[in-house]
């Protein structure tokens, strides 16, 4: 599904990602872990198409196509979803209107008619229930006045609404208490099928107690320094990132 080859990314001339290879297949869950500043969020937002990031070298194919050649919105329409670490507040744009526009743009892309009002409401209600997002929030402006946990739930809600093929969740667990974490994880697990894939980016291991990854990668100083099965997360939890720092010296 996603194939990253020797990817290098710079911000304002400074290289952040220094050559990454990664392959994600349908049905898989990958976790990318690493200490602060290792380049996790840069990688995530580059895959979603953030403009300020400069791809200096490498290739990324997504569903057989050149991902780096696509606009941000086309990536999304083809099923790539980024769950933001810091969801943006957009005063004046209601969450309902936002989701309706997004769903319809996606449908248009697939040659479908706009969703009917009643189907849309049904879809909203179903997905809200999945992540426990209160209706009073969906009627508000996007993320405006949402608590940290509500914002993260809202990301999973949007993911559920758009039903992506590849979801990249950037630090979705940060700032969540254990109950919110469970709800978010539960949402992700319910959306998991053999046809879609998830990349979970996290600093801590605890989210991985609830979402069991097939692979764990450790990103350090812009490179993947270790890849293994889910047991790697536990090892990291136990030994801390200093262990990686020691090893990569």
């Amino acid at each position: 599904m996603l194939n990253i080859k020797d990817l290098h990314i710079s911000i304002e001339g400074r290289e952040i990602i220094k050559g990454i290879d990664l392959e994600v297949k349908a049905g898989e869950v990958h976790a990318i872990m690493g200490p602060n500043g290792s380049g996790k969020s840069t990688l995530a937002s580059a895959l979603a198409g953030r403009e300020l990031l400069e791809i200096t070298k490498g290739h990324v194919t997504y569903l057989g196509e050149d991902l780096l050649d696509m606009s941000t919105e086309d990536r999304a329409k083809k099923g790539l979803f980024l769950g933001f670490q810091y969801p943006v507040e957009i005063p004046g744009v209601s969450l309902v209107n936002f989701m309706k526009t997004a769903v319809n743009e996606q449908r248009k892309f697939h040659g479908l008619e706009p969703i009917s009002a009643s189907d849309f409401l049904k879809l909203m209600r179903e997905k809200q229930d999945l992540v426990g997002l209160h209706t009073k929030l969906t009627n508000r402006s996007v993320n405006e006045g949402f608590s940290g946990g509500e914002k993260k739930r809202n990301e999973i809600f949007q993911m559920a609404m758009l039903n992506p093929k590849l979801a990249i969740l950037d630090e979705t667990d940060s700032g969540l208490d254990i109950d919110a974490l469970k709800i978010v994880a539960n949402g992700v697990n319910k959306l998991r099928t053999k046809d879609n894939a998830t990349i979970i980016i996290t600093h801590y291991q605890r989210l991985l107690d609830y979402i069991i990854p097939d692979y764990v990668h450790v990103l350090y100083k812009g490179k993947i320094v270790k890849s293994s099965g889910k047991e790697l997360a536990l090892e990291l939890e136990e030994k801390g990132y200093d262990w990686i720092r020691e090893e990569s010296k």
Binding site: A48, T72, E73, V88, I90, F98, A102, V142
Partner: peptide, 11 residues
């Protein structure tokens, strides 16, 4: 905000 909206498939 532009990036956020576009990342959801909005042109």
């Amino acid at each position: 905000a532009m990036f956020y909206l576009r990342s959801r498939g909005i042109s």
